[in-house]
Amino acid sequence: NKFNKEMRNAYWEILHLPNLNEEQKNAFIQSLYDDPSQSANLLAEAKKLNDAQA
Rank of each mutant, 00 (worst) to 15 (best):
N26M: 14
L15N: 06
Q38D: 10
Q53Y: 11
N41G: 12
D34I: 09
F28N: 01
N41H: 14
A10I: 04
A40H: 13
K5M: 02
I14S: 00
L20E: 00
E23T: 07
L20T: 00
S37W: 06
L17W: 03
N21F: 13
A46P: 00
Q53R: 02
K5Q: 14
H16S: 12
A40T: 12
E23M: 11
E45G: 14
Y33D: 02
W12K: 15
D34R: 08
N50H: 04
Q30T: 09
E6N: 02
E6L: 04
I29N: 01
L17H: 06
D34A: 14
A44M: 14
A44Q: 13
A40R: 05
F3G: 04
E45M: 15
F3I: 11
S39Y: 10
N50S: 11
A44D: 13
K5A: 05
I29E: 02
K2A: 06
N19K: 07
K48A: 07
N26G: 08
K47G: 04
N9H: 14
P18Y: 08
S37E: 12
S37Y: 08
N4G: 02
E22D: 05
K48I: 07
W12I: 07
D35H: 09
K2M: 11
P36G: 14
N41M: 12
Q30R: 13
Q38T: 14
E23N: 12
K2Q: 14
L20G: 00
L20F: 03
N41T: 10
Q53V: 13
P36Y: 03
H16T: 04
N1M: 02
K25V: 08
N19Q: 11
Q53M: 12
M7K: 01
E23Y: 09
N1A: 01
L17I: 02
E13D: 06
P18T: 11
F3A: 03
N1I: 03
L15M: 11
Y11N: 02
D35R: 08
N21M: 11
A54T: 14
A54D: 10
A10Q: 02
N50D: 09
K25Q: 07
E45S: 12
L32K: 00
K47T: 02
L32G: 01
E6V: 04
N1P: 02
K48Q: 14
L49P: 01
A46D: 00
K47R: 05
H16R: 11
P36K: 05
F28P: 00
K25N: 01
S37M: 05
N9E: 15
L20W: 00
D35S: 09
E45L: 08
Y11P: 00
Q38M: 14
K2G: 14
S31W: 09
M7D: 06
E45D: 10
N50G: 02
I14T: 01
N41A: 09
W12P: 01
N26E: 09
A27Y: 11
E13S: 12
A52D: 08
L17Q: 08
P36N: 06
A10V: 05
N41K: 13
K47A: 04
D34H: 14
L15D: 02
K25G: 03
A40N: 11
N19M: 05
P36I: 02
F3S: 03
L43Q: 05
A10M: 02
D34G: 07
F3V: 14
Q38Y: 09
Q53D: 07
L49M: 12
N19E: 08
N21G: 13
L17G: 00
S37L: 03
N4F: 05
D35I: 07
Y11H: 09
L32N: 01
S31A: 03
P18K: 11
D35M: 09
N41P: 06
N50Y: 01
N50L: 01
K5G: 05
A52F: 09
K48H: 14
M7N: 03
A40E: 03
K2D: 15
N50R: 03
E22W: 07
D35Y: 07
E13P: 00
I29G: 15
L42D: 01
A52L: 12
S39K: 04
N1Y: 01
N19T: 02
L43S: 09
L49V: 12
L43V: 08
L15I: 15
K5V: 06
Q30F: 13
A46H: 00
N21R: 04
N9L: 11
Q24T: 10
S31G: 07
A52P: 05
D51W: 14
N50I: 01
D35A: 08
N19W: 13
L15H: 06
F3P: 14
S37I: 07
K5E: 15
N21Q: 13
A10H: 03
L32H: 00
A40L: 13
A10Y: 02
K48D: 10
S39V: 01
E22P: 03
M7F: 14
I29L: 07
A46S: 09
S37R: 06
E13W: 13
F28E: 00
A44T: 14
K2F: 13
K5H: 04
L15K: 15
A40S: 11
R8Q: 13
E45I: 10
E22R: 15
L32E: 00
I29T: 02
L43G: 03
A10R: 02
I29R: 06
W12G: 03
P18M: 09
Q53G: 14
K25L: 09
A46L: 01
E13T: 15
N4S: 02
A27K: 12
N26H: 08
N26Y: 12
N1K: 02
K25H: 03
I29W: 15
D34T: 12
P36R: 04
L15E: 04
A52V: 08
S39I: 07
E23L: 08
I14E: 00
Q24E: 10
L42P: 02
H16I: 05
L43M: 08
P36Q: 07
Q24L: 08
A10S: 04
A27N: 11
Q24S: 06
L32I: 05
H16Q: 08
A46R: 00
S39P: 03
Y33W: 09
K2V: 07
P36H: 04
L32A: 01
M7Q: 15
E23G: 08
A54R: 01
E13L: 11
M7V: 12
N4A: 01
L15Y: 12
N1F: 02
I14F: 05
E23H: 11
A52H: 13
E22Q: 08
H16W: 10
A54Q: 14
A54W: 11
S39E: 01
D34N: 06
D34M: 09
H16F: 09
K48W: 07
E13V: 09
E45R: 13
E23K: 12
Y11D: 01
K47N: 08
L17N: 01
I29Q: 08
L32V: 06
N19P: 00
N41Y: 09
D34L: 13
I14W: 00
F28T: 03
H16N: 06
K5W: 06
K2E: 15
Y11E: 07
N19F: 14
A54S: 12
R8F: 15
L20Q: 00
F28D: 00
N41V: 03
S39T: 06
Y33H: 04
L49K: 10
D51G: 13
K47S: 04
A27P: 04
K5T: 03
A54M: 14
A52M: 12
Q53T: 11
A46M: 01
H16L: 09
K47P: 00
E13Y: 12
L43K: 09
E6P: 03
K25T: 11
Q38W: 10
P18E: 03
